[in-house]
Amino acid sequence: MSVEIHALVGPYALDALDDVERAAFERHLRECEPCRLEADDLRETAARLADGAWSVPPPGLRDNVLAAIGNTRQVSAPATRSARPVRRMWVAAAAAVVVAAGAAGAGAWTIQDQRVRTAQATAAQEARVRTILTAPDVVLREETLDSGGRVTVASSRLQDAGVIMLSADGAPAAGRVYQTWTIRAGTPSSAGALGEGQSAAVQVIDGLPEANQVGVTVEAAPGATTPSAPLDALVELT
């Protein structure tokens, strides 16, 4: 994966990554100095392409913008870099319900899009979910949640990715959230936490086939760094 991911610097600079890959690459940028320098450099070049798109702005725009900034509070300079919220990677929260159609197995799954889109739930992400769910080697596993509901995990080695689909009967108590974990060789790492009041989510996980298990817990909002016992569900992948 690591050799592969450096190669995304060109598409990244052109905004040609979908949201999921963009988030993965931005994580990589925090660890990879050469990619960071090259990304800044290529973004600078890509932005020059705006020179080629010059167009006369509509007449009313200036007044509208100047009026809008009068009512817009400015942010102050960042003192410290705030940690990225863990739930950023959640895709299409409460938007997609996975339905098993016909015999279980490859390609037998469809997504019913309820058109309740969150800002992050872009077509690109949905396409990625579909690609994984329809991969010829996809393996599906499902467990019930102790709190009520179910968690389904789809995993494809060909895509080197998987999808965790959580559909609980209801949201946890106030101040608590669902959180999922990938567990590799006994070590859990957070795959993301839902927002308060959320009970369903579909999440794409790069490299999921490397994990042995997927766990679900209920944690204090906005999520924990290590899972607390007892697990709400544990899905065995191997």
Binding site: R43, E44, A47, A68, I69, T72
Partner: peptide, 29 residues
């Protein structure tokens, strides 16, 4: 969208980091 972007430039101008690129590239990005 242009209006959203220009208001965003106003709102987040303090976040512009000259170490990482030019001001115009920041806006066009």
């Amino acid at each position: 969208v242009a209006q959203e972007v220009l208001v965003e430039v106003w709102r987040t101008a303090a976040r512009f980091d000259p170490e990482r690129g030019s001001p115009t590239a920041w806006v066009f990005t």
